[in-house]
C-alpha cells in the first residue's frame, strides 16, 4: 500500500495534527517507510503462529474493589484553562 497526500491529510484530520504543505513530502516518505516495513512483515509465513497481543508473560493484574479518596474539585480544576460550574469549560462540541 502506498500512502498518498489524501490519506495523510485524513490521518492528520483524525488525529488533530496539522501537516504544513511544505512538509508533506517529508511526512509521506516517513509514512511510506512504515508501510513498506509492514509489507515486509506481511510476507512472513504465520500459518501456525498464535496471534500475539501482549508480549510479556504477565496476566490478571487486578486490584480489589476498594474506593479511595481522589483529588478535590479545586485541585482537579487547578490547571484547567477555563471553568464552568465546577466543570472543565470546553468550546462548542456540535456544529
Amino acid at each position: 500500500m502506498k500512502v498518498t497526500a489524501d490519506i495523510a491529510l485524513r490521518i492528520a484530520d483524525l488525529t488533530k495534527v496539522i501537516i504544513p504543505e511544505a512538509e508533506m513530502d517529508a511526512y509521506l516518505e516517513h509514512y511510506n517507510k512504515v508501510f513498506d516495513y509492514a509489507d515486509e512483515l506481511q510476507k512472513l509465513d504465520t500459518e501456525n503462529v498464535e496471534p500475539t497481543t501482549y508480549i510479556l508473560p504477565i496476566y490478571n493484574a487486578f486490584r480489589e474493589d476498594v474506593a479511595v479518596e481522589g483529588v478535590t474539585q479545586e485541585v482537579a480544576l487547578k490547571d484547567a484553562p477555563a471553568v464552568y460550574n465546577g466543570g472543565f469549560k470546553v468550546p462548542r462540541v456540535m456544529e
Partner: peptide
C-alpha cells in the same frame, strides 16, 4: 480507585488516572 458512587458535585470523584494525566497507569478492578 476513585469512588464509582453518583454525586452531584462535579469533579469530586476524580484522580490523575481518570483525569488522563501523564504518568498514570490503569489497573483493572
Amino acid at each position: 480507585t476513585c469512588s464509582a458512587e453518583f454525586t452531584n458535585v462535579p469533579n469530586t470523584h476524580v484522580c490523575p488516572g481518570c483525569l488522563g494525566l501523564p504518568g498514570t497507569l490503569p489497573v483493572l478492578n
